[in-house]
Amino acid sequence: MSLTCQVQVILNNITEKKAEAVKKAIEPDNVNFPKGLSLNVEKIDNRLVFNFEGTEDMRKLIGTIDEVLEHVQVALKVIE
């Protein structure tokens, strides 16, 4: 039996300009993901929605969520 896990993280209450900047800062690294792992980033008005999906190895999924959220934090800090 294979285990698939989906995690959605929503970043609210940021300006549309900041949401766009963060999305553009994160997206170029969203390549060459290990097999069974994916990330989709959507900007909806002034919200950023991160959709993570992992199959089998949950440590990889958790590690990816951890790193992406750290990058979001860095991006917001340097443009505040």
Binding site: K17, K18, E20, A21, V22, K24, A25, I26, P28, D29, E67, H71, V74, A75, V78, I79
Partner: peptide, 18 residues
């Protein structure tokens, strides 16, 4: 890789926002 990505995120954030 993990180190390079931090510098890239900082640079892209500034480039995109400003």
């Amino acid at each position: 890789g993990p180190c390079l990505r931090v510098g890239a995120v900082v640079a892209r954030s500034l480039a995109s926002y400003y």
